[in-house]
């Protein structure tokens, strides 16, 4: 039972890592804590849901759509709204993204009602059985996708010219400017990419859990916890943090009670902030 719980947790943690990586990217480059981040997950999930329900497109195949949709949404939000507060004191961006959260979550509620929805594919029951463990294929696939996504993001940031420009802007905006980098463009790209990868996570989640318009906020909190665990602004850390949180949540649900998950998240967050604010890897941006 323990191993099963751990495996389930790892598979779950992979997905956590994906949207947390987006959150970490946005914070690392722009210093913006995106309170609406969970709503981006929600939008990605619903994109897949509607494509599945109306277009019979498999959630895995809908990934490019949700990535593109969320990229556009993210780019737009940044260019139109967040760009105006990026240079202002950070508190402005928190409240601003909070306002954006209210708009997105409640607009979604208005459009799609509060009903819980889920996607049931033909293959969602089939699983791998080995040594008494049950591993659904779908979950294995989502985990694989998740690792690919985080790895892809890391490679993008470190091996491409744009990725380099994004990193440079994060480290010294003025000097990056003098190399010809347009900060506005970089910020919008960063937000767009962060949103896109988060949208993909949403798609993966839609095949996993029930989804509903108000789900966003708790995902934002989870993202924050993952990122504090792994180190704020450090992408590989998001993977580590995600896996750890996933396993801890799984163990709690198995041995104690699933109802206390947000209490657990907060508790972990709390402990990390006291003892290891730079994350387990020690590479987080703290002050």
């Amino acid at each position: 039972m323990l191993i099963q719980a751990i495996i389930t947790g790892l598979l779950l943690g992979g997905i956590y890592a994906v949207y947390s990586a987006g959150f970490s990217l946005i914070f690392g480059v722009m210093g913006v804590v995106n309170i609406a981040h969970g709503d981006l997950v929600m939008l990605g999930a619903f994109t897949s849901y509607w494509l599945f329900t109306l277009g019979h497109i498999d959630p895995f195949l809908s990934i490019p759509f949700s990535a593109l949709t969320l990229f556009i949404v993210g780019y737009g939000i940044q260019r139109l709204i967040i760009n105006r507060v990026v240079e202002a004191p950070p508190i402005m961006s928190y409240i601003c993204t909070f306002g954006i959260h209210l708009i997105i979550a409640n607009l979604a509620l208005r459009l799609w009602t509060a009903d819980y929805r889920s996607i049931t594919t033909s293959y969602c029951g089939s699983h791998l059985e080995c040594a008494g463990l049950v591993i659904p294929y779908a979950r294995l696939a989502t985990f694989g996708m998740a690792v690919v996504m985080v790895g892809g993001l890391y490679l993008f940031l470190n091996r491409t010219d744009i990725g380099r420009a994004i990193r440079a802007t994060a480290q010294d905006r003025e000097m990056a400017r003098l190399m010809g980098v347009r900060a506005n463009h970089v910020y919008a790209m960063t937000f767009g990419i962060g949103a896109a990868i988060t949208g993909v996570a949403g798609s993966l989640i839609s095949s996993y859990f029930v989804i509903y318009p108000q789900m966003g906020l708790s995902y934002t909190v989870t993202a924050f916890c993952v990122v504090v665990l792994g180190g704020m602004g450090y992408i590989p850390g998001a993977l580590l943090g995600g896996l750890i949180l996933g396993v801890l949540e799984s163990l709690t649900a198995t041995y104690w009670n699933a109802g206390m998950s947000s209490a657990l998240t907060f508790f972990i967050l709390f402990l990390m902030l006291i003892f290891m604010p730079a994350g387990i890897t020690g590479k987080g941006i703290v002050e």
């Binding site: 914070f27 210093g31 804590v33 309170i35 950070p90 508190i91 928190y94 906020l217 708790s218 934002t220 909190v221 924050f224 916890c225 504090v228 704020m232 947000s262 209490a263 998240t265 907060f266 508790f267 967050l269 709390f270 902030l273 604010p277 703290v286 002050e287």
Partner: peptide, 16 residues
Amino acid sequence: LRGAYFAIATFAFAEA
């Protein structure tokens, strides 16, 4: 720590 941590930590606390 930075204000960002306080903001979400307090939110997490309320939810918890």
